[in-house]
Amino acid sequence: MDLLPEIHGPIGVFDSGYGGLTILDEIRRAMPRYDYIYLGDNARAPYGTRSFEIVYKFTLEAVVRLFEEGCPLVILACNTASAKALRSIQQNDLPILAFDRRVLGVIRPTVEVIGNMTKTRKIGVLGTLGTIQSESYPLEIKKLYPDIEVYSEPCPMWVPLIENNEHNSPGADYFVKLYIDRLMNQCSQIDTVILGCTHYPILLEKIKKYLPSGVQAVAQGEWVARSLSDYFKRHPEMDERCTKQGTCRFYTTESEAKFIDAASLFLHEKLDVRHITLG
């Protein structure tokens, strides 16, 4: 029996919206030689309030499209997709659809480093409603660090503020302080806070402003990039299948012009954007 030829191509990076660009930016900074395709399902965003079934359906459609574009590896640069769809895709779909491809998420890399950051062993998680309701962070943290207590707070207004370019407004200050106060009121001993949404680094300075002194905020991009680099060291066969011409293409399910305008909050470069449809 003839074996199928190995797929060689770019690394796929998927998000429901624009926040995954913060992950892409850190990955490209750490690994600039690789080729990338970023796919934003902007027309159907946000995913944060959608059901598990819909998030899974939409995420799988995006993963399949990136596979069709030749990606041997796809990063779900979206906490909601990582929380609600990653495990099902890895366990149920990949063995049937593409046994030789891989799909990775953003939750596990962040969780892996948190144990070395907290001294009080009490941490907070700020995220979308979908990510918080999934309890993915508490479940993953308990697997690695049973002694850590996790307190979570949904921040439903943060993504709309960012995507409507209102993140520098007084209203943004109000909502940043509101959700941080709600989190800290759950436990005053929290010393480390995970920003469990890839949009949130845009608000990082405001978040630091309203966090109590001595409480650190953990953005995901750096740790996802480090984790991917480590993954390639452990899996050189996958590293060899990722092409390295230093290119980056952007796909959106919304209009190209709208994507370029919104993406300027996250990336400062001329973008090659193409409109696609999913589903």
Rank of each mutant, 00 (worst) to 15 (best):
R65D: 00
S82K: 00
E153Y: 05
I75L: 11
L39Y: 07
T131M: 03
Q90L: 01
C71N: 08
S88P: 10
F52R: 15
M117C: 13
F58K: 11
A77P: 09
V106R: 00
W158M: 06
W158I: 10
M117T: 10
N116D: 13
E149L: 15
D93I: 11
A45Y: 04
A45L: 10
F99E: 14
G130D: 02
Y38S: 13
E153H: 08
K142H: 10
T131W: 01
P72E: 14
I75E: 00
A83D: 05
D41E: 09
L73M: 13
G48V: 02
R50L: 14
I141V: 15
L86T: 04
S82M: 04
Y38G: 12
K142F: 04
K142P: 02
V74K: 01
K142G: 05
Y137V: 11
C78W: 12
I96R: 09
L97M: 08
Q133Y: 13
E135Y: 02
T131Y: 00
F67R: 00
G115H: 01
P72R: 01
D41S: 13
R50W: 03
R44L: 09
M117H: 11
V111G: 00
R121P: 14
C78E: 11
E61K: 13
R108W: 00
T59I: 06
P138D: 01
Q90N: 01
A62D: 09
